[in-house]
Computed example of a mutant assay.
Amino acid sequence: MTTTTTATASSKVLRVPPADPETAAAHFHRRFTFEADVADVHADVESAAGGFVLVDSRSSEAWAQGHIPGAVHLPTDEIPARAAELVPPGSVVVTYCWGPGCNGATRAAYEFAAAGYRVKEMLGGFEYWSREGFPVEDAAGLRRSAPDPLTAPVSGGGASCGC
């Protein structure tokens, strides 16, 4: 339910007024230049749209536990020494780590940017990739979990929240 009323001094949401529409549009556009959604990354991976290299910045133990098929494994601490060896210079990079409670993908994105790459961070990380029911790869092969109804629609395979 949405209610339109005059803001009162007791509103915690409106104690700092929202930006004007032009400033807000610029802010949200800017965020899109730094972030990619799990569902959008999945759609591009599935369609082979290309245009970016997906990089898993987690440890070798985490990678072995499961990773996104087709991702390049490059732990954050190794990026300065090994990025050019594993990711062609000039590539757009999309980084991911565990999930929203971890800033590893942000650290990895920083390292790639510092090395001269254009980069985006995949919001939600490996956690939301797997929770949305997208394929995960490990030594045993590919597997899929049922979509978590709190992250993606159960019907339709969890491919998109529809937003």
Results as ranks from 00 to 15, higher is better:
residue 122 M to S: 06
residue 88 P to E: 03
residue 60 S to A: 15
residue 106 T to E: 11
residue 45 V to T: 12
residue 92 V to N: 13
residue 146 A to Q: 05
residue 108 A to K: 02
residue 68 I to V: 15
residue 97 C to Q: 00
residue 108 A to L: 08
residue 109 A to S: 13
residue 52 F to C: 07
residue 121 E to N: 14
residue 83 A to E: 03
residue 61 E to Q: 14
residue 70 G to F: 10
residue 48 A to R: 10
residue 116 G to D: 08
residue 70 G to V: 10
residue 122 M to A: 09
residue 85 E to A: 15
residue 129 W to R: 05
residue 121 E to V: 15
residue 87 V to R: 00
residue 57 S to C: 14
residue 96 Y to H: 15
residue 118 R to C: 05
residue 43 A to Y: 05
residue 128 Y to C: 12
residue 95 T to K: 12
residue 91 S to N: 06
residue 113 A to V: 05
residue 133 G to D: 00
residue 81 A to E: 13
residue 48 A to M: 06
residue 96 Y to F: 15
residue 71 A to S: 15
residue 100 P to L: 07
residue 62 A to F: 12
residue 97 C to Y: 01
residue 103 N to V: 10
residue 73 H to P: 05
residue 59 S to K: 08
residue 150 L to S: 12
residue 68 I to S: 04
residue 104 G to M: 01
residue 135 P to V: 07
residue 75 P to A: 10
residue 52 F to M: 06
residue 88 P to S: 07
residue 151 T to I: 07
residue 125 G to D: 08
residue 91 S to L: 05
residue 129 W to F: 08
residue 48 A to V: 01
residue 109 A to L: 04
residue 54 L to S: 12
residue 104 G to A: 02
residue 67 H to L: 04
residue 117 Y to E: 00
residue 90 G to T: 03
residue 84 A to E: 10
residue 148 D to N: 15
residue 120 K to C: 02
residue 63 W to C: 04
residue 62 A to P: 05
residue 71 A to T: 09
residue 51 G to M: 12
residue 145 S to W: 08
residue 103 N to Y: 07
residue 85 E to I: 08
residue 141 G to L: 04
residue 104 G to F: 01
residue 51 G to R: 14
residue 68 I to Y: 03
residue 54 L to A: 13
residue 84 A to N: 05
residue 81 A to M: 11
residue 82 R to A: 13
residue 128 Y to V: 12
residue 101 G to R: 15
residue 134 F to T: 01
residue 73 H to E: 01
residue 100 P to F: 09
residue 104 G to Y: 03
residue 143 R to K: 11
residue 131 R to N: 08
residue 70 G to P: 08
residue 139 A to C: 04
residue 54 L to K: 13
residue 104 G to W: 01
residue 142 L to E: 05
residue 65 Q to T: 12
residue 147 P to K: 07
